[in-house]
Amino acid sequence: MAGSRPLPTLDEPDSGEFWRATTTKELKFQRCDSCATTIWYPRPHCTGCLDGTLAWHSSNGFGTLYSYSVVRQSYHPFFRNLVPYAVAYVDVDEGFRILTNVVGIEDPSTELKIGQRLQLVWEEHEGLNIPLFEPAG
């Protein structure tokens, strides 16, 4: 039994709203109304200024591969059956850097290039969806 990818909880105080929005396949992020700082991961306060209020925005789901690794060995009951797979930092066009997986490729060790364009793809689960990326185009 491979089990499931470890899923986030919907009621974590800082990031719950982000995950609840994934049910409609919205990739939400926060930006400060006062100083325009983009906040990632979600939290209730601006890290750029003391008194700004944060507003939620939706990403168009395009970004650039900042860095990645291909996991060849994992003892995790789910991920051990997924190897080799790519973990990556993606610089999303709206200005935040998300940790995710790059999927939709046959051989992650040869097909990925730092700087390449990627697009959002949702992995569907009950009650929420997981934001992953695949090569754009």
């Binding site: 470890p6 986030p8 800082d14 990031s15 973990v87 940790l99």
Partner: peptide, 10 residues
């Protein structure tokens, strides 16, 4: 943790 654990980053 809640934003990163789903990735399987060893």
């Amino acid at each position: 943790d809640n934003m990163e654990s789903f990735v399987g980053q060893t």
